[in-house]
């Protein structure tokens, strides 16, 4: 039998920030291990960028921009934003599934920061956004997309999308925490996602839409994000849209992070 004195740590009343971060990283590591064990989880982030990019470009290219080559600078940033944000829904469904398994009981019984399992899940999901981003841009490149902004600006644009998707994933994490089942999380999230990604300038220039719709499209944060990404990648310029996007997602985090954490604490 083991010896009692080797590992016992004196009981502590509080957790330090360092411990909380270390525990969140461990939880993120756990999620990554699970992805490695079940790589089919990554199907969506692998195939969606490839299929959507191909489909949208060849279907709409001629109609919207005259030809595919002219459409690529419009569609690639649009589809990048749409795909990566869609990916962030998984955060919510997986969180729900995870919270329903027996192992979550153990996490709750451990003397760890209450927030660690949540933070770990959100952190690990950035790897999914990264995969979706790289694949979408690569797909565009294969189809002939040559962004004028150069590699560094394209990388910045990718980073911007990842940061925004992470922020938006808090919305879906919130649904994940309050919903009863994973499929209802999926349902609610889709209902939100479709309007905000399609009622934007991601696929079609806003000017071609009716006036009342333009009103929504122009205030939709997704439009600002798409424009910011286009400007960064296509011309290498930074403008107010980038600031607007960052402020927009900061507001999302400011609202949904506390809501999610509070709901999560109550649930656990």
């Amino acid at each position: 039998m083991m010896t009692r004195d080797t590992l016992s740590m004196p009981p502590r009343r509080n957790l330090s920030l360092g411990q909380t971060i270390q525990q969140s990283l461990t939880m993120a590591y756990r999620t990554l291990l699970k992805i490695r064990r079940t790589p089919e989880q990554l199907m969506d982030v692998t195939f969606q960028p490839i299929i959507f990019t191909l489909m949208f470009t060849y279907i709409f290219g001629g109609a919207i921009a005259g030809n595919v080559q002219h459409y690529l600078p419009i569609i690639i940033p649009g589809i990048l934003v749409q795909t990566v944000i869609t990916t962030s829904i998984v955060t919510g469904t997986q969180l729900r599934e995870d919270m329903d398994t027996g192992v979550f009981d153990r996490f709750k019984a451990l003397p760890i920061a209450r927030i660690a399992p949540l933070a770990g899940a959100l952190l690990a999901d950035t790897i999914r956004y990264l995969i979706a981003t790289v694949l979408t841009i690569s797909m565009g490149y294969i189809m002939g997309y040559r962004p004028q902004g150069g590699l560094s600006h394209v990388a910045m644009a990718g980073l911007l999308v990842i940061v925004c998707a992470w922020a938006i994933s808090w919305i879906f994490a919130f649904f994940g925490v309050i919903a009863r089942t994973a499929s209802s999380v999926q349902g609610i999230s889709m209902l939100i996602l479709f309007p905000i990604t399609f009622l934007s300038n991601a696929f079609v220039p806003a000017e071609t839409m009716p006036h009342w719709l333009q009103g929504f499209v122009n205030v939709n944060p997704v439009s600002h994000l798409v424009t910011a990404v286009r400007d960064l990648a296509n011309t290498g310029t930074v403008n107010s849209n980038l600031v607007t996007s960052l402020v927009g997602v900061a507001v999302i985090v400011a609202i949904f992070a506390p809501l999610t954490v509070r709901a999560y604490m109550r649930r656990t």
Binding site: M9, P11, R12, R30, L33, K34, R37, T38, T101, G102, V103, F104, D105, R106, A109, P111
Partner: peptide
């Protein structure tokens, strides 16, 4: 920090 709990339903990660 003072208790260990082993539940009726295995509380370990199935896929790991």
């Amino acid at each position: 920090q003072l208790v260990g709990v082993t539940g009726q339903y295995a509380s370990v990660d199935e896929s790991l």
